[in-house]
Design a protein around this nucleic acid. Structure first.
Lengths: 229, 229
DNA sequence: TGATCGCAGAATGTATCCATATCAACGAGG
DNA sequence: CCTCGTTGATATGGATACATTCTGCGATCA
């Protein structure tokens, strides 16, 4: 049982020199950016040619994305962009309801003043913004940054995954939001940033929980986003 | 954006004909069974020879186990059996506290009478058992079976992952349990199976939460399980 | 003496080729 | 006309060989 220690830095997010990582990064960006739709087939050879590499690193990239939950692999059959049923999407939101309050609670006391300034700026940018892609990016940045100081690596990873796998449906949902719904979102964000500025963890938790829950309920009213295609 | 549908069965748990799956299965069993310790190095060539295969399926197997959280891969460096710090282990229990009550609540109404009989049998077997490996197996079977009827695939997967990654520490912890502690566990299991038999979801949730929380607190008193080796 | 550079060995990453499984089209039979 | 079996094309899985990167040890120089 000679247990040799791991290198210190278990997480290396910076682009590595490994082709598979680069391909995975590009693919991830394509999926999150909506350029690849859920259910769409991914073929190894096409990707390989596209990247000027052999199929080998592509296969590894697909495995990587599978562990991110972004791609579904089936033996001897192929790879598809993961898709969620309405039930699964609702489930993702239920999990977020239970875990993100934990994250914000752990994070708030450790956020720097500078980070809170950035968060405030993001909320303001969100109010002025009208573009859907920009909304998705800013909203994601705002929430994930608000959790970023939390020292809880495992929860963070789970939440990142859920944000990734639900990204496509948030986009579709955002497109459907009417002005009333946008107003509500704006207010929720204002309440949340206010609580964060005052470092009122309890209030932040409550507001966040309501924010996610309301979104889940709203999503339940749009089953058309999940029709099998 | 021609989204072609995926095959119906996204999950194929039965042993496939694919070598990588078989290797992954064996490795998983080795890790969960304690024959491979956290932090231990895994070398592709050794495994390949051991299975009479080339390094290629081994690499795929390692990716699979990475998505299970059992293995940590580092580019251009190698693979290690995942290990947890005490903080991460405590975090895993905090997540379980928040998600497993959800699972048991969703599961209980859908459990068949037969499954409840099996659960009852497992509790009895646990009380009579004295062997550590058997305890781990029975305890795991009991809890996971009690959740098995829950239609929540995502939560289930998260919980399975957490049980996997904490397995080694549960083993070490189980070895340290004194008779008083074992008594408490027995009572908790009895309360839980009683609530399940009566299909009392609220009581089951409460009992389960306490069960996990007490274990987490108890674990916090044994930092020696996490010394860097 | 110690610190840095460099080289050798080993392990991982990649490419190419071959084997095999899957699926759809086609044709024969009922 | 429908059903079932066969067959062929296509895409994935696996093996071997080669390239690249990392690590640790030792020599050299300040």
């Amino acid at each position: 049982m000679s247990a040799q220690g791991l290198p210190q830095n278990q997480r290396i997010d910076k682009a590595s020199t490994v082709a598979a990582d680069k391909i995975a990064g590009q693919l991830r960006s394509d999926i999150l950016g909506g350029r690849l739709a859920p259910g769409e087939r991914i073929m190894q050879e096409v990707l390989a040619e596209q990247f000027g590499a052999s199929r080998m690193p592509v296969r590894e990239a697909l495995r990587i994305l599978q562990s991110d939950g972004l791609v579904t692999l089936i033996s001897n059959s192929g790879a598809w962009v993961s898709k969620l049923s309405m039930a699964e999407c609702a489930e993702a939101y239920e999990i977020r309801e239970r875990l993100e309050p934990l994250l914000i609670r752990e994070s708030i006391p450790l956020l720097s003043d500078h980070e809170i300034d950035v968060l405030t700026g993001l909320v303001e940018a969100l109010e002025e913004n009208t573009d859907v892609e920009m909304f998705l990016r800013l909203d994601r940045q705002f929430h994930l940054l608000s959790y970023s100081a939390a020292p809880t690596a495992i929860v963070s990873e789970i939440i990142h995954r859920l944000w990734n796998t639900t990204q496509h449906y948030r986009r579709a949902f955002t497109l459907l939001m009417n002005s009333e719904r946008r107003q509500i979102t704006t207010y929720e964000h204002r309440l949340l940033i206010d609580a964060i500025q005052r470092r009122d963890t309890d209030e932040a938790e409550r507001t966040l929980l309501g924010h996610i829950r309301r979104t889940r309920h709203e999503l339940g009213r749009h089953p058309e986003l999940f029709i099998a295609s």
